[in-house]
Amino acid sequence: MELILVNLIDGLVTGLLLFMLSAGLTLIFSMMGVLNFAHASFYMLGAYFAYQISIALGFWMGLLIAPLIVGIMGAGVERYGLRRVHQYGHVPELIFTFGLALLIEELVQFIWGKNQMPYSVPDVLNFTAFAIAGNSIPAYKIFMIFISIAIFIGLLYILTRTRVGMIIQAALSYPRTVEALGHNVPLIFMGVFGVGTALAGVAGVIAGPVLGTFPGMAFVLGSIVFVTIVIGGLGSLWGALVASLLIGWITTFAKSYNIAMSDILNGIGIPSPADLDTSAFRDLWTVTSPQIADILPYILMVMILIFRPQGLFGKRQS
């Protein structure tokens, strides 16, 4: 019972982290209609910049400055890269972001090398916040939860309650009309791209110490971010949140409990084959939930695409 609570907290941390990445990506997609393959690379840059800054100025300055740098870089990529490629259509844009992802990975390896960076949790947060039945919850996890929730609320407030948010939302659906009303739509696009990448940067800054800061970190997280926004519905902030939490909890629970496929199959009335070693379905019968935990989100995505192609909260039928 206590373990369920612990897993709920762990899943929440994973989910919220995923949300910070997918929030930016989904905003960028709904705005420009292009999937940014380099999004996870900005997450990685966030972690590396923060590590470099934390050596000189400490963790907190890293948390403050690194996302800013990442955001400015993101805005620059939009202004001088994507905007120029945009006129040639979506495929060149996709290829551009794909190339950018490879470029950033190589660049990171060139500057920092291929080793793990000793980027660690600041001493102020390096203690056990509380323990549930012997399972300690590090204070840093609580900190991660608070940062992510604060960012979500802030984002929601800006998008729905402020004038800037209204213009952004209008520009998402009717860019020509907004332009005709005298707003600088390209500037809005640049701003949203910058904020989106800065969010990925924040995620990198706070995930770097716990998930490891190494050149493969973008690759490990890259595909799952796309799965998240497809499940949540492309362009929907709430969808991104719900899908992130769903994925966080599904994978955490699947890994924490050893549910064997044979138990499930027996449960629904299919008896185990007499001789498992020679059975054609041996692999299916011996599989356990921790083994398939990481592909469960992909199965969920396929299901969503079949039964609700616009995603959980998606409005667009494209």
Partner: peptide, 21 residues
Amino acid sequence: DELHPIGKVKDFTPYSRKIVA
């Protein structure tokens, strides 16, 4: 006695929970 996918696990927390428990 457990095996996890190689090079694909983002967060080992669920595994360590099981170990502690």
